[in-house]
């Protein structure tokens, strides 16, 4: 995984609440056996008409937002299906950070595995950033993970919380599996004890 660098880019406002992973990447595109190439189908039903022409009103189709790197979203973003195709599609499109008042658990975890930083803020803070995002391509936000700070286009700074371990992995681009395999002896020891205590497992 690439290291998470400081992001400065256009933020797309998506105030709709409960944006689910079926919306982020419809099932039609889950038939792939690859992780890559899903960006073109990100938000497919919302983004394209049945004849595949673009819906001009959809935020990522508007000229100002076609190269967005940040999404400011309504509450409970990423609910529903566990499909990791959702963060794959977001990442492939170029999204590096999503900001909302809350995220669904599985989606939240999946983001970190794919170099995307999901940030949870309170409603008032998200409202400020949503307004900022609505300014279009002149509104470039900055996200500094190391400092845990968002800087709006007006220069206002909002700090955010992030789990220390997840932050470390994102900054260093670390692979969880490699980290866990270092603990191989603990896992084996657990399995031995467990084989005695719960042999039926």
């Amino acid at each position: 995984m690439d290291k998470f660098q400081k992001v400065t880019g256009v933020a797309a406002p998506m105030p709709l609440i409960n944006i689910d992973t079926d919306m982020i990447i419809p099932k039609l595109f889950l038939k792939t056996i690859k992780r890559s190439g899903l960006g073109v189908n990100l938000f497919d039903d919302m983004r394209y008409n049945l004849d595949r022409s673009e819906k001009p009103d959809f935020v990522l189709n508007k000229p100002a937002y076609r190269k967005s790197e940040i999404i400011v979203a309504g509450d409970n973003f990423g609910c529903g299906s566990s499909r990791e195709h959702a963060p794959w599609a977001l990442a492939d499109f170029g999204i590096k950070c999503v900001i909302s008042t809350s995220f669904a658990d599985i989606f939240f975890g999946n983001c970190f595995k794919n170099g995307i930083l999901p940030i949870v803020l309170d409603q008032a803070q998200v409202d400020v950033l949503m307004k900022d995002a609505e300014k279009g391509e002149n509104a470039r936000m900055s996200i500094d993970l190391e400092a845990q700070e968002i800087t709006t286009s007006d220069g206002d700074v909002i700090s955010f919380n992030v789990d220390a371990f997840k932050k470390h992995c994102l900054l260093e681009g670390l692979d969880d599996i490699g980290l866990t395999l270092v603990k191989k002896q603990s896992i084996s020891a657990f399995e031995e004890t467990s084989a005695q205590a719960r042999p039926w497992v």
Partner: peptide, 13 residues
């Protein structure tokens, strides 16, 4: 439920 990265993690460990 888990994502595919975690599927890989569980498969491996």
């Amino acid at each position: 439920g888990i994502g595919t990265s975690e599927v890989e993690h569980v498969l491996a460990t």
